[in-house]
Design a protein around this nucleic acid. Sequence first.
DNA 1: TTGAAAGCGCTACCAG
DNA 2: CTGGTAGCGCTTTCAA
Lengths: 343, 343
Amino acid sequence: MGNSRMTVREIAKLAGVSVATVSRVSNGTGQVSEEMRRRVLEAIEKHGYRPDHLGRALAAGRHGALGLVFPGLSGPYFTELIQGFESEAVPSRASVHILCTHLRSDADDQVLEMGRRVDGVAVIGGTVSDEALLRLATMVPVVVIAGEGPGDIPSVRADNAGSMLALTRHLLVDHDLRDLVFVGNPAGSPDVSERWAAFRGAHHDLGIDPPAEPVAVSMQQADGVLAADQLLCGDTPRPAGVVCANDEIALGVLVGALGRGLRVPQDLVITGFDDMPAAALVTPALTTVRQPVRELTAEAARLILRAADQPGNTAAGSLVLPTELVLRRSCGCPAPPTGGTGR
Amino acid sequence: MGNSRMTVREIAKLAGVSVATVSRVSNGTGQVSEEMRRRVLEAIEKHGYRPDHLGRALAAGRHGALGLVFPGLSGPYFTELIQGFESEAVPSRASVHILCTHLRSDADDQVLEMGRRVDGVAVIGGTVSDEALLRLATMVPVVVIAGEGPGDIPSVRADNAGSMLALTRHLLVDHDLRDLVFVGNPAGSPDVSERWAAFRGAHHDLGIDPPAEPVAVSMQQADGVLAADQLLCGDTPRPAGVVCANDEIALGVLVGALGRGLRVPQDLVITGFDDMPAAALVTPALTTVRQPVRELTAEAARLILRAADQPGNTAAGSLVLPTELVLRRSCGCPAPPTGGTGR
DNA sequence: TTGAAAGCGCTACCAG
DNA sequence: CTGGTAGCGCTTTCAA
């Protein structure tokens, strides 16, 4: 029943009260007598009135919305990011705006435009220019996710280095492997850049020469398959182990290897990063690094919401979330005694 | 330079003109003398003024935003949907709001709330109740994606039945296979429901008994791995072919099969649906059905934007986009002569 | 061509 | 406790 295009004034007239009273009732603010409240609620109910968001937002000087900016989302990692963000935004009655800057040249402008429509923005590292980020930060609270921001823009990221160092050292020392390759494009994101650096660092620490270059591919499963094509084609000696920038790539490499009849880990060791659900389930189960992907954006949303409430209106308090090395079968470790999920 | 918290009034004062003139200049509407325009632009430039979105939206009675509602996004299919939607929204200067109703019980309320913040909404089929959908449609244009809406709410969907019928018939007739199983949950989405129905239909058409029940799992790769565990554990006779509700499941089944040392397609035939990038690249390449995922949402966005402009304010014009059977190696068809991408 | 003023729908202050 | 009223920032008549 009832058109939702009713306004406070109409409801006020119908209930025979003032707009102020209608507002008080519909917001639960202030003191209203039982009699008045009943009359107003009746009119609201009868006509299906719900306050218009724009009017409310304009009066409050607040959008009730948060923005999330991606490079060009793909795969489970990004969907996890979105869900983590949402999990915090929704309970605070904030809607989520998303923007994929992709390859568009006007990315900076679009991010700035977004800044005009939301109460705060979380930006995935490496997505927009530092200049745009700083400018954006003058209008709303900004948090960088999976990367570091310029100036004192706070960030929320995972401890890439620690676990990648441990993982590489594990392969090098515990499994005594040499000729490892790294698959992923360090120029593509701060995350991969840190992982590649830690991969090399582990080699250096042990006095071993790391490969000079990574196999630079994107982060999707298809890219892993392509990398496998390149690494396992037989033209060059096969590496002993393939350290991948994320699980998707690793799964692609795994499929590529298995499809060629190679045995993993006997003929080839493969590792991933992220610990996505499929990692524990494939055969052989994937050795990887667990990072709290949803927490990244959930934490960022909290930071932003807190800042949006406060006078200063600037987010603060960078944090680095812990990661965890998850050893499973694909690196050559023995299969766990039961079940085999590796958890 | 310049705080972007300037208002029309301040700029007007600084430029020594009226707010109306500032508005005209910043929108490029109406006639303004060269002299005035220059003065205003100078002030705008100097103070970095950009009109506030809320004020503008309230005056225009339009949000400049579109909403996209998902069940609980995961995987490449959903990211494609988002990108397709964005590709149409961004050029129209509309921001994209997203909402994952997930398992939340208040999904209907949230969708209705979204309806108050945007100019139109696209809802993935099977996400919210018909009742909520109808109510939503009274406030803004609504389009259902990958499913059918109640009443005369328009929808944009892919031709699931046609290609699934052709695919199943291909396995049954051309490859003379029996004992096919279907992996996917028909209750999970209209898409899967249609695919399962067509899978059964193809059997009936040929006088063959289809399996009574599908292997009901979700749509992610991990679920495919689980399905493989169940189907290939050896407790029951192995099926001849596994027809999967999407490529992700199929890839999971493929990994599960290869990890067990089975040969595909010799020992087991596997097919998918979607034709995601990895499908063409894995070994063996995946036989699947190509559907224009991005087009689905792009088309929906166009429908909504058009409707939002018009007086009636109701979207109209359902459409069914064509799909295409893509035969590759995993169903037993010979490998293509060159390259091997199957395209 | 320009400006004054009337809203858009809502909240919140200030009197009564 | 209640109602009038002044905005929030912008666009858009309507006169001048």
